[in-house]
């Protein structure tokens, strides 16, 4: 679906890293920003970790590859001062929504845009290989030495579900672009995954979500990893009114997840950070994708793709669909 102008890994990738570092060095030495938020190598195989560079000597920590899966826009509202952020397509969309919602000051933000070919979903790999002991990425291949078995994957096989359906691999808002860009064929959004779920019976869907919700431990990693869940007080923490008891009953878990998804209606940028952050592997994405599909089909809206388009729920039209009305 997505045609690459450059190959995964190899020289292109390392020149991107060099350019990121050079840009970061320039920004810090010129005093344009106080901090550069990027990625450094994590302590686990195939895992990068967010990195806050404040002085030029830390710049060489910065990396860029297919393991840079966190959405750094989540840190943009938490980090004080002027900041530069390395942004993939989805991260930049989140920044657009945050700017539209007045959560960020544009002048305090320097967006280092990098086109993204998708990130690796470790959980997918670990389901087969067991815990990963060692891994390497080269020439579009991911070679994994696991506790159960060793395996080689093509990058496409282990790409995160969100990246499989991504239509905006190139940053939509940026101050500088690093590396090549990715050609995306012009076509409408495809929601095959949602359609598949919709085609199941209500009972099957109910059973599916109950099973998913039974896994949730309400650690709120999904909420906190989400760049757009920035409420000072989340409804789950609110005690007047007290929406939830704090129990881990699956109905309450669904209340939480459904409530969260509804708050993200027309705002979710489908970065998939929530699903990847979930330590229990709850299929949160299934809910967010449904919401995206509905917003897209009913209101022709995709969030965060342009500073000029209003969020779907901030607008209305006299002829909005009314299929939900009770049949009399």
């Amino acid at each position: 679906m997505v045609y690459l102008k450059y190959k995964t890994g190899g020289e292109q990738m390392s020149s991107i890293v060099d350019d990121i570092r050079a840009t970061a060095r320039q920004l810090l030495t010129d005093g344009k920003v106080d901090v550069v938020i990027g990625y450094e190598k994590g302590s686990l195989p195939l895992k990068a970790t967010p990195c806050f560079v404040r002085s030029p000597q830390d710049i060489d920590k910065l990396i860029w590859d297919e393991t840079c899966e966190n959405n750094l826009a989540a840190f943009s509202t938490l980090t004080e001062g002027k900041k530069a952020i390395i942004a993939k397509g989805c991260d930049s969309r989140a920044l657009v929504v945050l700017l539209q919602e007045n959560q960020l000051v544009r002048d305090d933000l320097y967006i280092i845009g990098v086109s993204c070919q998708g990130v690796i979903n470790k959980k997918k790999i670990e389901a087969e290989t067991g815990e990963i002991l060692e891994a390497s990425i080269a020439d579009g291949k991911v070679t994994v030495k696991g506790m159960v078995c060793d395996k080689e994957y093509t990058f496409t096989e282990v790409k995160d579900a969100s990246c499989q359906t991504c239509r905006y691999p190139n940053p939509v808002l940026e101050d500088i672009h690093i590396g090549g860009s990715i050609d995306v064929p012009q076509q409408a959004a495809v929601f095959a995954d949602v359609a598949e779920m919709e085609n199941k019976t209500a009972g099957e869907r109910q059973a599916y979500f109950q099973e998913q919700m039974s896994k949730c431990i309400r650690c709120y990693a999904c909420r906190n990893a989400c760049p757009l869940c920035y409420c000072k007080e989340c409804f789950v923490d609110c005690n007047s009114p007290k929406w939830l008891t704090g129990g881990v009953d699956q109905a309450e878990n669904l209340f939480f997840q459904a409530g969260r998804v509804l708050h993200l209606a027309g705002r979710c940028v489908e970065c998939g950070a929530c699903s990847r952050a979930c330590p229990q592997d709850v299929d949160i994405r299934a809910l967010n994708r449904k919401m995206s599909k509905d917003v897209f089909t009913m209101y022709k809206h995709e969030s965060g793709i342009s500073m000029d388009s209003n969020p779907a729920l901030n607008e209305y039209s006299a002829d909005d669909p009314e299929a939900f009305l009770v049949k009399e």
Binding site: A202, R205, A207, K290, D294, M298, Y299, F324
Partner: peptide, 23 residues
């Protein structure tokens, strides 16, 4: 415009509730 704004929300809520298996 209160109900116009509400209408968008309601359509999404209704769809989501059915999706998660509410009758």
């Amino acid at each position: 415009s209160g109900n116009y704004v509400a209408r968008r929300k309601f359509a999404l809520i209704d769809s989501l509730l059915k999706y998660v298996g509410l009758e």
